[in-house]
Each structure stands twice: as structure tokens, then as C-alpha cells.
């Protein structure tokens, strides 16, 4: 799947959860990715993140180890 699209989608999710109250925003981003993205998509995102972490929202980066 296009890494650009995965990045954009993940960052969109992070944008929402950043606005939510509580200390567990990264966990909730991870929860959303685990609930709605198949394992292949999550793996692709992780693989892309290795070389392109700068493209990802900070919350996504914090969520990556949890997905």
C-alpha cells in the first residue's frame, strides 16, 4: 500500500486523539490502529516508519511499539 497514504491516515488518527483528554493518547492511537487496520497495514506502517519517522506525527511514533 502507498506509504504516503498510510502515513496520512495514521497522522489523521493521531490528530483526533491529540485533542482527547487523558494521558493515554498514544495508547488510544495504537488501539484504533489495532482495531481497524489489518496486521499487514500496521506492519507496512512500521516498516515505513523505520526510514521515515520524520513524516509521522509524534503520537503515531509513540503508538508504533504498541501495534
Amino acid at each position: 500500500m502507498s506509504p504516503d497514504k498510510l502515513t496520512r491516515m495514521a497522522n489523521q488518527i493521531a490528530t483526533f486523539f491529540r485533542t482527547q483528554p487523558g494521558p493515554d493518547q498514544a495508547e488510544r492511537v495504537a488501539g484504533h490502529l489495532n482495531d481497524y487496520w489489518g496486521p499487514e497495514m500496521r506492519a507496512e506502517l512500521k516498516a515505513h516508519a523505520e526510514a521515515h519517522a520524520d513524516e509521522l506525527d509524534d503520537l503515531v511514533k509513540r503508538a508504533l511499539p504498541l501495534i
Binding site: M1, S2, W37, G38, P39, E40, M41
Partner: peptide, 18 residues
Amino acid sequence: PEPGLRIPNMLDAAVSGS
């Protein structure tokens, strides 16, 4: 136990060959 592909994901995955 893992979610599958949504329509746009299916199309993206098709373009990338999986």
C-alpha cells in the same frame, strides 16, 4: 482475530500486488 481490509485498503493492496 485481526481486522481485514476495508474497500479502499483492498484497492490499495490490489495496486501494490497483494
